[in-house]
């Protein structure tokens, strides 16, 4: 790798033989480097690969990076890795740095973009939302801004999209899926779901998992199943059939996929548990 820009003692930009530009971070990496010299990577340093620009464009790219935003993004990435129990793509650092720089520019021009999904993100993804809140605190402190929970939700959404294995932008569809499905349960079964109750949280998690499965490009194998295990009477059977048909329409609209028989059963079991719980 060859050093092409030194930002500070701890961050440099470097280009490899395949003309891929990376930011290299670590204690003293900038202090010991010189422009156009070979960079011997140390194990404790971190390498963040950027997009693959045209060779004559990379100077523009490295010049356009807001290095303070990049440093904060790195902190946010570390906090997210500590608190979310899934693997997060390192690209998040670069994506967030770009997002933060853009947000700061917008604020300078007095432009605020509300996040219409804030309430849903706060309820459906509390861990990611909390990381978002901490991130917003760091950004506000560094840039003397007053970003609020709408921004926490944007950051939570970026994190969710960078979950290893997640489909690009699937978080929008999954969040919408959870929201609409919960409304559907309320409407089809005339139940009032308290969002703070543990039983609601469980149902929400199961719907979230179903949404994640539906957003996967590969449809999972379906199995022969016996729906009699639910032991529904005739009226209930009709009610659940209608609910599953509605759910199927929602899945088709959001994920361009139909629910398999086992997915319908999965959904029915969890809704039935809610109904039994409420009925107790």
């Amino acid at each position: 790798m060859k050093v092409i820009k030194i930002y500070n003692n701890n961050i440099v930009a470097a280009i490899n033989d395949n003309e891929k530009v990376s930011l290299v971070t670590g204690k003293g990496v900038g202090y010991h480097s010189k422009i156009n010299q070979h960079l011997e990577l140390k194990e404790e340093w971190k390498v963040f690969e950027l997009v693959n620009p045209q060779f004559d464009e990379y100077h523009n790219l490295v010049d356009s990076i807001n290095i303070e935003a990049f440093s904060i993004s790195q902190q946010i990435y570390d906090i997210a890795c500590d608190h979310l129990n899934y693997e997060i793509n390192k690209l998040l650092v670069v994506v967030l740095a770009d997002h933060i720089s853009f947000k700061i520019e917008l604020l300078k021009n007095k432009v605020r973009v509300p996040n219409l999904l804030t309430a849903e993100i706060r309820t459906f993804y509390p861990n990611e939302f909390c990381v978002g809140e901490i991130a917003v605190g760091l950004i506000n402190k560094a840039f003397n801004t007053d970003l609020d929970s709408d921004e926490s939700s944007y950051i939570a959404m970026h994190i969710l999209n960078m979950m290893v294995g997640a489909q690009e932008n699937s978080v929008f569809s999954i969040t919408e899926f959870i929201k609409v499905m919960l409304e559907l349960v309320k409407a089809d079964f005339s139940v009032d779901l308290e969002t703070t109750a543990w039983i609601f949280e469980r149902l929400m998690i199961h719907i979230k998992y179903l949404g994640q499965r539906l957003s996967s490009p590969k449809a999972p194998k379906d199995y022969e199943i016996d729906t009699d295990i639910l032991k529904l009477n005739e009226t209930q059977q009709l009610q659940f059939d209608q609910f599953c048909n509605h759910a199927d329409l929602i899945a088709s609209r959001l994920f361009k996929r139909s629910l398999s028989a086992s997915e319908k059963l999965y959904l029915s079991i969890h809704v039935l548990r809610i109904l039994n719980y409420i009925g107790d």
């Binding site: 509390p126 909390c130 809140e133 901490i134 917003v136 605190g137 760091l138 506000n140 402190k141 801004t145 007053d146 970003l147 609020d148």
Partner: peptide
């Protein structure tokens, strides 16, 4: 301030429950 109910696992997997109270918009 904003408040989160937080849990962290103890060594035996017990969720140890608490409050996390943080200032907003700056920490």
């Amino acid at each position: 301030e904003k408040v989160f109910k937080v849990s962290v696992e103890g060594l035996d997997g017990t969720p140890v429950i608490g409050w996390y109270i943080h200032h907003s918009p700056k920490p």
